[in-house]
Design a protein around this nucleic acid. Structure first.
Lengths: 192, 192, 192, 192
DNA sequence: TATGAATGAGCTTTCATTCAT
DNA sequence: TATGAATGAAAGCTCATTCAT
């Protein structure tokens, strides 16, 4: 009855709502996405949403926590284990881009969240975690890039690349993009 | 009442609406900003807005065209005149960051527009202009960075830096940020 | 709660909206009737209207089609089956006046629609159907009245009689009015 | 400088407003016509209207009184002087149709006024005057048509004919229409 | 007289949320 | 769990009217 990924109908409704919501929020913003929009794409009625989430705000909180945790976990598991700083940067780009290729909506969601939300609990967001990495490296003299510049460089570049990709501006293969982005970013981190 | 003075009261209402609108749109998004919000901050009633703009959509069109033209003009005048590719990249970062320091709302507005708008007449946006620069350089062998990666690197990094700045994550001086960002980006463009 | 009874509460909301709307539109015009007016008389809130009709325009379209179809059907079934032209005119007056006595609001609605709407899909309106009857009779020599004069005579007279009735100018019994109107109109159609 | 009807610019603004207003009111109704509509077609701004009329209501009152007086005067001068009842009916049709041919907007205006206005000072309207004629004739036995039926027949038929004419349904010449309408109506009044 | 900016009330419509079924 | 009708607040927009110039 369960197995791995049977038919779409077996995905629980709450999960289907979450998937649709993250896509719509990431494309149209929070106010730009209505409960009706979400319900419509899920294939249920508006009222049904409230069986799974107590409010629109609740959906946003749920998604933000979930995406953040997933990404922070990834960084913790995949990036922090690296020995060298260069290794960490390389792995960071790989992890972020891999995440973005697999979950473009979730990746975009975080950007939209950063830009549009007025009150952001910064400590919990992935950016904070990454900033810490760069801060420590900066203090230890492993890089001469200002931590916030380093963070902007990595997150901003990748983020924008995926926007361009969705706009159809970039049509390159996934592995090409990964290789090229890694090349550019690693050079920026390399000393003068 | 006071000749050709430049006191704040003499700024025409349409311009005051535009300034408030660009700030609010860039912070709360298009749907997240109401006509009432705008009117309230300008100090007029909602109805008065409609003497100057025919609709909310009209305000958005006006702002987009205006900001785009200003930035495209700047790039045309300041960046394209450079002789070397490195000179162009350097000047590009300077021009963009200078624009962003002076017009943070307008700069953010463009990002928000990119992310939230569904139908974008891409040709007209500044990014398009910059992409062309990178494309030509790539074809001439002046850089080995994929054009879309180069564009993402420059625009994305700067864009994100200003988001971090507004979130209070970065508190460095303007000229420090400019110098550091230029350093990082120029390195990325330098050959291997 | 009470089986298939026909108590007023069991009339579906959409139908209740339609009935109120046809009355208000026919008395105060389209712009003169507000959604709030309609909702208020139905006993629901303005927003509830939009669960049943997508817009005010949608209500107007719905009513126009419905009333038109009913009247055209009536004419088709009751008038066209008559053998003689005189019989058709007589039956036409009966059918129209009977319809107007029973559905004064619907009858008035059509008049208001004729007068106030700018773009009318004429083919669909009952008048068109009647005009055809008169045209054919005119061509066959069954009457010497110009088709448009004949149509004006029948529709215009009846229409105006009902306006006078609602203004309180005419207080005669229904069957008196029917008899007298029939007498007048039939004479007009009779040869010289 | 004055003479009889020089250039259009010499028509006083108040008169130009009145002419535009009667046309718009007669086509779009009272609520459906805005001060801006009127001002726009006159070629002045909204504020300027208020130099000539104290309110929209004032324009309506002015037009109603003016059109009514003109028509009542016409009836008094042209119809009541006839010796025979048949002569009066004939002259009435002539006068009404001539008025409608020359002032289609004013003629329509009265219809719209009858239908849409909630409070009508009936005594003053032309219909009242005509009804009196038919009442007296009915009492004297000069016609066997019920006064309200007679009134509906004359006013309603002519009214509708002009609506059809504006809708493009009738394309006959003016004198043809007059002759045919007179023929039809006179027959209706003729005894059995 | 006329303009044009502004007001304030009211319009149509949207939308998050509730609730009886 | 889900539906669908309804609410009520707020959105975008319109419009008669006012007023300084």
């Amino acid at each position: 009855m369960s197995g791995k990924g049977k038919s779409l109908e077996l995905v629980p409704t709450k999960e289907r709502i979450a998937r649709v919501a993250v896509r719509l929020f990431s494309k149209k913003g929070f106010k730009g996405t209505t409960i009706k929009d979400i319900a419509g794409e899920v294939g249920i009625t508006e009222g049904a949403i409230y069986r799974h989430f107590s409010s629109k705000e609740d959906i946003i909180r749920y998604l933000t926590r979930r995406i953040t945790e997933e990404l922070v976990d990834l960084i913790r598991r995949e990036v922090l284990k690296e020995r060298t700083f260069t290794g960490m940067v390389e792995r960071l780009v790989e992890v972020l881009m891999d995440f973005a290729f697999k979950n473009p909506d979730s990746f975009r969601y975080l950007t939209v969240y950063h830009i549009l939300r007025e009150e952001i609990p910064q400590e919990d967001l992935p950016g904070r975690k990454i900033l810490e990495i760069f801060r420590r490296a900066y203090e230890k003299g492993e890089t001469d890039l200002l931590p916030e510049v380093a963070l902007s460089l990595v997150i901003g570049s990748i983020d924008r690349l995926f926007i361009l990709r969705e706009l159809g501006v970039s049509v390159a293969e996934e592995d090409t993009l990964l290789r090229e982005m890694k090349k550019a970013i690693l050079r920026a981190f390399r000393g003068p």
